[in-house]
């Protein structure tokens, strides 16, 4: 079981770096949706016995993150006619290197965190931290509203991995609530992307400062 699980985590880490390294928005959406799909599979692997509730949550997560959200995002970028992130704050290669750096740091940090004793898979906490940091990099270094959404999704994925530590303790309602929040947030942002594009003729979020008092 653990080998499969670790393989998935390594794949997730690799997808982080891919997401940082690509400029094509469609590719990026596909990467993030693949990451969500892999995450959805994880609860099925981590437990020795498969409960109906966790299976349900898993299937729902795969459905939402792997299909619904990507299709919404693809639709949104088709509507606003953009294909690439042209001017990131730092280049694609540097941001990939930065991603690798924070992944390394995450491995360092994870060993020093005061976690409860138990048989946690060794890669789980570092992978979670690394994904969160990569989400942060996407959020802070990319300027288009749509890439910000990706960053937010990656960040959420990192938190989701951390949540796997509590997979036995977390009730189904909480997981469903988190998924619903995510769905609503993305839904709203997709509408907003359209409006931002219409108002500012661009998706550059720096222009939003003109709304400041």
């Amino acid at each position: 079981m653990n080998t499969w699980f670790n393989t998935l985590l390594v794949l997730v880490l690799a997808l982080n770096l891919f997401a940082l390294g690509t400029s094509r928005l469609v590719t990026m959406i596909k990467i993030v949706s693949l990451q969500g799909l892999l995450l959805g599979l994880m609860p099925l692997l981590i437990e020795d016995h498969l409960a109906v509730t966790s299976a349900l949550a898993s299937i729902l997560a795969i459905f939402l993150k792997g299909m619904i959200i990507p299709s919404m995002l693809l639709r949104a970028i088709r509507d606003v006619h953009i294909k690439r992130e042209i001017e990131p704050l730092i280049g694609l290669l540097p941001s990939m290197l930065l991603g690798a750096l924070v992944t390394g740091f995450a491995l360092l940090f994870a060993s020093s965190l005061p976690l409860a004793e138990g048989d946690t898979p060794p890669l789980l906490v570092p992978a979670s931290l690394a994904t969160i940091f990569c989400g942060f990099i996407l959020l802070t270094m990319r300027l288009k509203a749509i890439t910000q959404v990706m960053g937010y999704l990656v960040l959420e994925n990192g938190i989701y991995i951390f949540g796997l530590l509590l997979v036995e303790a977390m009730p189904l309602v909480v997981e469903l609530g988190v998924l619903l929040d995510l769905f609503v947030a993305i839904f709203v942002v997709c509408i907003m992307v359209n409006h931002i594009n219409k108002t500012f003729s661009s998706l550059d979020t720096r222009l939003l400062t003109s709304l400041k008092e």
Binding site: F105, S112, L113, L129, F136, I137, T140, L143, L208, T209
Partner: peptide
């Protein structure tokens, strides 16, 4: 300056610094 990126960067840097503080 009212830039969301900048504020997020503050949050990220703070988190990393706090985590770094726990490093032995």
């Amino acid at each position: 300056r009212g830039l969301t990126h900048q504020y997020l960067l503050y949050v990220g840097v703070t988190v990393i610094l706090l985590l770094g503080w726990t490093l032995p």
